[in-house]
């Protein structure tokens, strides 16, 4: 093959990636650059921006315990939601993966069904479920278990419940894809070598499904940590997450420079999680295919 042909061959991935790279550049990289520049500006008392290179916003964001505490609270809620998604999502994913072909399609369709309804509507549905006159209280009072309605809404637990409700399908789908790709002969081979059903699952199926579990966890964590709708609808006065601060700083206080610095902190945190995942669990396998 000639040198010219080699060069043509080398260009092909870039040509194919061109549209995607352009989209990422124009819709993500350049806007993020704007946000970086904005974060060094200052908001004046009358609400306009003072252009320049000021470190005040960054100093505030990085040294003020208020922002640190909300960030820690955000990570905690995101981690708890992700762990609950793992606990609640594995069994359904396993069930779908090992269901017969005819039922599998139906089950996947049922899994996708919530996506047809707006995320906000799904979140608000918890008010009708857990509210004072909601389904749970009405049922418990009807059967005489309680006399007075229980107060279940507007706390951290309902925020986590709302997030799990939103994120669970993402977790189940990721685990399912992983489980579905496992060669069934491997389990049979383990059992033929003396493993019982539980041992075969623990030694063969579970380790082989970990990439899906990890991918689902990454997705759930990133989505949970970046949400602001759920705590806004289902949280109490003190159950805000970091994205709520970004929203409030930019939209209510009109302090775009400080809001930019806050959003970059969240971006860096979530980017670090993705980088850690890539390093330890092999997202870079995708890049290796081009080498």
């Amino acid at each position: 093959m000639s040198a010219t042909a080699d060069r043509l061959f080398d260009r092909r991935p870039w040509i194919l990636l061109g549209p995607a790279l352009s989209a990422v550049t124009f819709l993500l990289v350049i806007p993020v650059c704007f946000i970086v520049v904005y974060s060094f500006w200052l908001r004046t008392a009358i609400g306009t921006e003072e252009v320049g290179f000021h470190l005040d916003n960054w100093q505030l964001v990085l040294t003020d315990p208020f922002y640190r505490d909300i960030l820690v609270q955000t990570i905690r809620i995101a981690v708890v939601s992700t762990l609950l998604c793992i606990a609640l999502g594995y069994v359904p994913a396993y069930f779908i993966a090992y269901a017969g072909a005819r039922h599998k399609l139906l089950l996947i369709l049922l899994l996708m069904l919530p996506f047809w309804i707006s995320y906000i509507i799904r979140t608000m549905s918890w008010i009708n479920i857990l509210g004072v006159s909601g389904a749970v209280n009405s049922a418990l009072m009807a059967v005489g278990v309680i006399d007075e309605p229980m107060r279940m809404l507007y706390n951290e637990a309902t925020v986590v419940a709302g997030l799990v409700h939103f994120l669970l399908p993402f977790m189940v789908l990721n685990i399912y894809v992983s489980l579905d790709g496992i060669d069934r002969n491997l389990t049979a081979a383990a059992q033929s070598l003396g493993c019982n059903g539980w041992q075969a699952f623990r030694e063969v199926t579970l380790p082989l499904s970990l990439p899906g579990l990890a991918a689902g966890s990454l997705l759930c964590f990133v989505l949970a940590a970046g949400t602001y709708i759920t705590p806004m609808i289902l949280g109490g006065p003190q159950n805000a997450m970091f994205a709520n601060l970004v929203f409030e700083t930019i939209i209510t206080q009109l302090n775009w420079p400080l809001g930019s610095a806050l959003s970059l902190v969240l971006l860096v945190l979530l980017g670090a999680v993705v980088m850690a995942y890539t390093h330890f669990l092999g997202l870079d396998q995708i890049a290796k295919s081009f080498r």
């Binding site: 609400g47 700083t249 209510t252």
Partner: peptide, 18 residues
């Protein structure tokens, strides 16, 4: 308006338990 910047930012903190 003269207190907007200071008070809106402070309320954000008070609202979250500060």
């Amino acid at each position: 308006n003269g207190h907007e910047q200071e008070w809106s930012a402070q309320f954000s903190r008070v609202q979250r338990g500060y």
